[in-house]
Amino acid sequence: MDYLTIIQILDSMLRLSAPLIFACLAGLFSERSGIFDIGLEGKMLASAFFSAAVAAATGSVWLGLMAGLTASMILAAIHGFASITFQGNQLISGVAINFLASGMTALIGQNWFRLGGRTPSLSGDGRFLPIEFPFAESIGKIPFLGPIYSELLSGHTILVYVALLTVPFTWWLLFKTRFGLRLRAVGENPEAVDTGGVSVSFLRYRAVLICGLLCGLGGAYLATGMAAGFIRDMTAGKGFIALAALIFAKWRPAYALYACLLFGFLEAIAIRYQNITIEGVGTIPVQFMQALPYILTIVILAGLVGKAIPPKAGGEPYVKER
């Protein structure tokens, strides 16, 4: 494996990690506020469809992005409605949202475009294009460090950089602001927050909507940045990998980044090499690589390597005492 190959794998790792980072941080906000969300997948899917559909219809990727964010946040609001206002089961609500997104996108897609659930291919202003950093070509000629700048860092769509910037922003918002402190508190001990005179419901609604916004960014990136259009069920389990990454990261922003990069790396390797043959050991089938994020998460959950402890009030609806 030569140097340029390594750079290329890391480059595709960044590309593949971006949607995971968005979805993982989305889950982080929601679950830190005490609302479990297994509907990340559905929200991303809805955003992917509506961003691609509107971008195809208007030719503007930014209008597409707005539509995608709106769709994702509507689903997030339904989740909030069910789990905060009506104190329903958050896991069941998440399952329903995944199905709703999967069914609705295919149904409406067929109705609007008649392409078997696809949207038309996006081109030009209809999608996010790679951004070349200044002097990428000339700096790229510098041995060793050059390719890192020109191949690895330069040449991604804007949403990849947004994803990377969202990580420190999330950390700042959660750990350095009053809002963040309250949000974390409401996920651990909502009674205390309520006693302090802060509305538990309002806080949780805001967390859930931020979750919708971030899932929306991830979904829009899938359909208008990474690919050029929507295809049926294109999230293909990314929402659940993000959920796995969230547990892997033990609900912490910086670790969420590392976990997403790791899972993106595994995916990049699986795409590039299919079955990996190691001398003397045998062949690692590509299916094993694909399952590895889930297996690693099980290992973490089993407490074999550290212990993953979710926010204490997660999953429990808060019933105000009267």
Partner: peptide, 25 residues
């Protein structure tokens, strides 16, 4: 033909939503 098979998935989702998550409604 305008109503594709995915209609069932939508109905299924709504049943789960209303009988499960939005039960208190």
């Amino acid at each position: 033909p305008a109503v594709s098979r995915e209609m069932i998935v939508v109905i299924q989702a709504l049943v789960i939503l209303f009988t499960g998550a939005l039960e208190n409604l």
